[in-house]
Design a protein around this nucleic acid. Structure first.
Length: 492
RNA sequence: CGGGAAGUAGCGCAGGCCGGUAGCGCAUCUGGUUUGGGACCAGGGGGUCGCAGGUUCGAAUCCUGUCUUCCCGACCA
């Protein structure tokens, strides 16, 4: 048996242990790239399916654009290109050949150099806007509401499973609109979709906000975000939605004929969430026993563990009861596994399913059958209860709901308890060092002050919350006047 | 990309200074007893010691290079 590192021992190692031992992902032989294992991929599929429905119901369609972006297209929008230039993988050749010096080895064929290098997409605005130019002529072609599910590559110096890998999976929405207002409202609509998804499905409370200039997406006019708080008090950006203005339309010359027959540049948005959300999920809810997954996106919601005895007749009754229970739970749309593998014992299974974060465990033994009951354990609180088999499927259904809500409320309480308003620099530093979490403080609005605070404390402005109340005050560092508080934190 | 640590059986590790038959625990396989929180007894299998060079009669061990991972920094979703 392997033991998990606890959160208090080493938070980072705890996180790695959960990902690896919980069966979500593995390291690969490729630097910075991970293998997403079936259990982790099932989790991603569940997240993806919910989001995909939400995108479709807000009028978006899926499409797929190339992995490679010709360098000349990539550099068209200058700020975007500049922002990503440092982390681009670039294809320069299209052929290998046998190494004349070493039998069985291959070398890059120097004769097969590409005339124009291909950038492996770190994001797809360039190739997409180059394509949109051909798709948009008239206001009748707008709005254009497209999403793609794809992989992207960002050559990161330092990687962490799910949180930051060189290649990752995500979705990126790219929309084109006739007016600024429409594009802005799309940007905010998708931010709401993300927030709703995070809170309802991932049980992850988020703050909706707008990024400061320093944190803005390269090439955007405004970047909106949802920010979540992890158990170690660090913030994590869980999704972004960008108002791109006319920057890409101008860079790629995408104009449309308006009703009055004038030619105008279109207005754009883009928005995305990635497999990073899995990292957020792990760090928001899990404990020292392993993963804790919200029922609504857990790959497996209920596991039934039989407790056999040597009595063959009792064993048969347990099997029958478990199979019947499995059917009735499935009838309610609950995913269930009857774990009747006889090679491991109940205690081992209990620990294993806790490690994997299965929300509900039902244990069935001869004693339970006799008394027409089952032992039910919930993963979030690790409480055990005895339930009658009469109507147990309904009770489990309710319990799953309750677990979902409890996880959300627990995370919300944690966030509220770790959101601190401070009014002096001393308090700012002290709260950051002793308590961490979000710090709500006044800021003079200048990039210089933000940068200075980052240098001094490693804390950055996570966002200016959208529901912010106007409040006169003084910048926590410079003392200059400020009209509202912003949220600071150290971040992933 | 800088600093630190690590890579030996599926997993966790010892051995390395001082070169000479590759070991331990867990897992696995066989047989048996078991099963309400990670079972027990007995027997068995499993290794190009990350990879590539070098030194040597002989390298897991010494030297050089290289790859991968972790932690801490700078960069970022």
């Amino acid at each position: 048996m392997s033991t998990l590192t606890t959160r208090s021992q080493d938070y980072s190692q705890w996180y790695n242990d959960l990902i690896l031992k919980g069966g979500l992902a593995d390291y690969s032989s490729v630097r910075g790239c991970m293998v997403i294992k079936p259990y982790g991929y099932a989790l991603w599929e569940n997240m993806r399916d919910v989001l995909d429905r939400m995108f479709k119901s807000t009028g978006h369609q899926n499409a797929y654009f190339p992995l490679f972006v010709p360098k000349s297209l990539f550099e068209a929008e200058e700020k975007n290109a500049e922002g990503f230039a440092k982390e681009c993988a670039v294809v320069t050749h299209y052929r290998l050949k046998a190494d004349p010096e070493q039998k069985g080895k291959l070398i890059v064929d120097p004769a097969a150099r590409l005339e124009e290098e291909l950038v492996v997409r770190p994001t797809s605005e360039a190739i997409i806007w180059n394509t949109y130019k051909g798709w948009i002529q008239s206001y009748r072609d707008l709005p254009l509401l497209i999403n793609q599910w794809a992989n992207v590559v960002r050559w990161e110096m330092r990687t962490r499973l799910f949180l930051r890998t060189a290649e990752f999976l995500w979705q990126e929405g790219h929309t084109a609109h006739a007016t600024k207002e429409e594009a802005l409202s799309e940007t905010l609509q998708m931010l709401d979709v993300y927030a709703q998804f995070a809170e309802e499905y991932m049980a992850l409370p988020v703050v909706k906000g707008i990024k400061t200039a320093n944190e803005r997406f390269a090439g955007a006019e405004d970047t909106y975000c949802i920010e979540a708080l992890m158990q170690d008090g660090k913030a994590l950006q869980a999704g972004t939605s960008h108002f791109l203005g006319q920057n890409f339309a101008k860079a790629f010359d995408v104009k449309f004929a308006a009703k009055d027959n004038t030619m105008e540049y279109v207005w754009a948005t883009s928005w995305g969430v990635s497999t990073r959300l899995i990292g957020a999920l792990v760090m928001a809810h899990s404990d020292d026993q392993g993963l804790v997954l919200p029922p609504k996106i857990a790959p497996l919601q209920v596991v039934i563990v039989p407790i056999f005895s040597k009595d063959a007749e009792a064993r048969q009754k347990i099997d029958e009861t478990a199979e019947q229970l499995t059917r009735s739970l499935r009838g309610k749309g609950i995913t269930v596994k009857y774990d009747n593998d006889d090679t491991s014992r109940p205690g081992w299974k209990f620990a294993e399913h806790e490690l994997r974060g299965v929300p509900v465990r039902i244990a069935l033994g001869a004693r339970d059958i006799e008394q027409n009951q089952a032992e039910v354990a919930r993963r979030d609180t690790r409480e055990k209860m005895t339930l009658s088999l009469e109507g147990i499927a309904d009770a489990i259904h309710q319990l799953l709901d309750e677990i979902q809500h409890n996880l959300y409320n627990r995370a919300l309480q944690f966030r509220d308890a770790h959101t601190t308003a401070v009014d002096s620099w001393e308090d700012f530093v002290q709260v950051l060092e002793t308590k961490a979490g979000f710090i709500s403080a006044h800021w003079d609005g200048t990039p210089e002050t933000e940068e200075r605070i980052k240098e001094l404390t490693k804390a950055t402005i996570r966002c200016i919350p959208l529901n912010n109340a106007a409040e006169e005050g003084h910048c926590v560092l410079s003392g200059k006047p400020s009209r509202q508080r912003v949220l600071f934190a150290r971040a992933y």
